[in-house]
Amino acid sequence: MPHLPDATDPSPLIHARGLTKRFGSFTAVDAIDFDVAPGESFGFLGPNGAGKTSAMRMIGCVSPVTSGTLRVLGHDPASHGPQIRARLGVVPQQDTLDNELTVRENLVIYGRYFGLSRAECGRRADELLDFAQLAERSGDQVEHMSGGMKRRLTIARSLINEPELMLLDEPTTGLDPQARHLLWDRLYRLKQRGVTLVLTTHYMDEAEQLCDRLVVMDKAKIVAEGSPRSLIERYSTREVTELRFAPGIGETLDGRLEGLAERIEHLPDRILLYADDGEAAAAAVHQRGLQPEAVLVRRSSLEDVFLRLTGRSLAD
């Protein structure tokens, strides 16, 4: 097992070395190393099947570690699972709300699972309903709520035990843009209060919005680690020029784009030119007599980092 010094904090909230999860002969998480410091927002970025959820379930002390070291809040999940879980706030990928109960009852009963008194559960439930902007829906049955409201309720529910560490597995997957922004706003407020957030996502914008630091996962391994900005600086250029050509023309361009950018990626539907000055690259394309149907110059994103690291786009 590699021994790495703890660079960030003497007592990280999560400490993983050689962390591995196998299901039979399938390796879902392959010897990953990472630390999460108190107050940090840490992300696992990667496509579906990269091992993010398996890692999260081990951290959440519901799935046993196959091999390697894992300490959560300083303790071993194998021996202190329930005690660690008492101090976590978990937002699972799939909603696990009770559709038969009301919005408020869902919060109260969840507090009861942590052994809080009924009075305390009621007090915290009312506070959290305000925080999640659900106070008006307090008495409604969960079944009739929108997806965005259910996610907000799930996040409110995960806060009922005043957790030291929150685990969010794809918190905004399947939500419309407006609901996502509302949710990000709530998570950002938690982050500002000093709550440590660990989240998985396959959305670049989500990772860039919420994470101080992230690891990029692909095929059960960590392929890169850093802040969103530093990853972009390291693995991409400042800007990207996207070119779309009429069908069939893209394949005939062999060599004609050469030298226009530091790096060129051919995707099925478009060509990406990685250059620090995107406008200049676009102008140079036209100077060579090429006529793309559409040209878009944009800032580099984590999507480009992922493409660079794995040769594949995240969306597939």
């Binding site: 879980r85 696990t96 009770d98 035990n161």
Partner: peptide, 13 residues
């Protein structure tokens, strides 16, 4: 509803 999984994320075994 997966309500048992919700319980399992808390100290409940």
């Amino acid at each position: 509803n997966r309500t048992f999984h919700a319980m399992f994320a808390t100290p409940i075994s």
